[in-house]
Design a binder for these strands. Structure first.
Lengths: 192, 192, 192, 192
DNA sequence: AGGTAAGCGAGACGGTACGTCAGGTCTTAAA
DNA sequence: TTTAAGACCTGACGTACCGTCTCGCTTACCT
């Protein structure tokens, strides 16, 4: 027989209030400045209610991220048939997002959180897009011969996303032609 | 005319003790768990002596890193004449270093510190090798036609180092052929 | 016309389990360290079941005491015909009880509880014996001329019990002749 | 040589602010409702500054009491030459003080504190007057034959103070003739 | 027999306070 | 004037209980 649960069930309202407050505070103040007390106060919740369900700040941030409270879903690259152009456009969009002062703090917070929690690391990876769509798009192009064979979508994705993460960390401005250069650095020029 | 200083000069012994203690504690406990009180105690130094010369934890860690207390100098890639092999060997060495449990904590600490301090970000970048040797090595190869023209050493370096940083964050195991795959993903196979 | 009750009646088993757990925990840990959660857990009872019937810790302790779970009934003084000897013997017995390390904590707990709850104060008074037997015994002796007239049993009882309570608070050791001295301080020596 | 002290010395201002805040809060809210956080806030002091010098609430209250922040010094009984009248007057004054609603809470707090801390118990004893003046006054009277010999000032003092403490606990009103009755219960009527 | 109240064990909830750790500033005496 | 020591105020930590509030169940009276 199933373990009989007793007592009041978990409050969904509290759960959501906590995750939302977490997301808001990470965006506003950053991961390091996020305090459990601050979250509890902002969510009008007792501290114990947080600690009952999440063991640490990093777990909390991880779930807030997973549930989409913290980051918009990983954007898929467009598909116009021209992979080089599509990847460059996608990268450009990401760099714009990354370099916006509104998102700077949040992104560095996520990286910081990833250094603390293995789970966040994995999540960050997926969320940034290496997960599926990007990988598939590249593998398809390799299959149709649009790009040279032997390229794995996963490897290419990792190189590109790595470059993005590196920019988040070094805070160096990117310049408008970087996306194109990076893509061409890997895929070469389009065959004429 | 010279600015005449009076009183006791800055104690070099204290300065070094502080930087060494910082490096040791970052390695042992990680950036987040590093406390200024802990550094002061470990270095047998008053807290004020730290705050007099460094304004924050991140400044302290940055200087500790810069002075070579925290990280071994960025390894230069070997030069056997075969760029692809050299880069792969260099990457392999880095991945071994990165995946060693002894260095894991320290590396994540550095990334974490970089999210806090712009200065550390820049330094981390240089230290990882994008600085000079790697870039030059690739540019030379492009000039001699060993690899296709149009590749900038800086871009290639950024892609490779980005992949390394990403692995530090995601903590996924690399596998022995990853370095080769990454290098070939960018440079393609050697011309026959 | 009788107030007809519906629903399940109060559980006697729960009531007794709660009072016994309360008594045990007061003895073991003292009034201050007694927690409602502790009582609920020890009695295998929901917290609400306690709060349904008792409004506060002090009420709970008061009833536990009244029902004899907490204190042995107030001892009556013996009656050998010699009031002075009887009172001294009775006091001696009480001092032994009071100074026993087993009872120390519980007695101080009762005093502490009395400071919180008027009801416990009254109960403690009765329980210590001022209630009836002691008073009557002294009044009888005054009536028969064994002791000087004008003495009220109640006043004498209060003086003696006050001395006991004072010892509970000050924790000073009593010495074997204190009971006799206190009794003689009030009643004087027996007429020859 | 003497252990050389270094670092800033203890702040007298903080010490006094803490003891005064403690005294005020005990008077206003009672011992049970006194919180260390409340004291820290009222004294504009960090909690650690309290915990650095006092280990617990009871220690803090004890010192506040000892330093006279909490209770007025034990009143000495008057000396008109008539011991019975003097003691009765002194008791009457004490009962007035004890039964004043302004002091009720504070006195029960002291008793409560005494149940927690042996030190406070001893202090309460002295402070209530058993210490010296009362004892001496009675002993003198016994020496001059004003009262029957064989009476120890200490015993008589304990009986009287015990009666006072008992009243504090039971909260029963005293009535105007109680002081006289208690004194006569011990000392008998004055010889004509 | 079915409906309707309670009572029950369990436990989640919003809170308050705990006692500790660390942050960054200030104050000493010694060097 | 710098140093080691360390007291100070502040703020956050993670825990223990408070008293209230659901839950799903059981018990017993009342149609």
């Amino acid at each position: 027989m199933s373990e009989q649960r007793r007592g009041a069930p978990r409050s969904e309202a509290a759960r959501i209030a906590i995750l939302e407050a977490t997301a808001r505070l990470v965006r506003e103040r950053g991961y390091e400045q996020l305090s459990m007390e601050g979250v509890a106060a902002a969510a009008h919740v007792g501290k114990q209610t947080i600690y009952r369900w999440w063991g640490s700040k990093s777990e909390l941030v991880a779930e807030s991220m997973l549930d989409g409270f913290l980051m918009p879903g990983g954007e898929e690259p467009p598909n116009t048939g021209d992979l080089r152009a599509d990847l460059a456009a996608w990268l450009r969009e990401i760099f714009v997002f990354v370099e916006s002062p509104d998102n700077e703090l949040m992104l560095r917070s996520l990286v910081s959180a990833a250094t603390v929690s293995r789970e966040i690391g994995a999540r960050l990876h997926e969320q940034l897009g290496a997960g599926s769509a990007l990988t598939r798009r590249i593998d398809d192009a390799a299959a149709t011969g649009e790009i040279r064979s032997g390229l794995l979508g996963q490897d290419v994705g990792e190189l590109l996303i790595g470059a993005v993460v590196l920019r988040v960390l070094t805070r160096e401005p990117t310049g408008p032609d970087l996306p194109g250069r990076l893509v061409r650095s890997i895929l070469g020029d389009a065959p004429s």
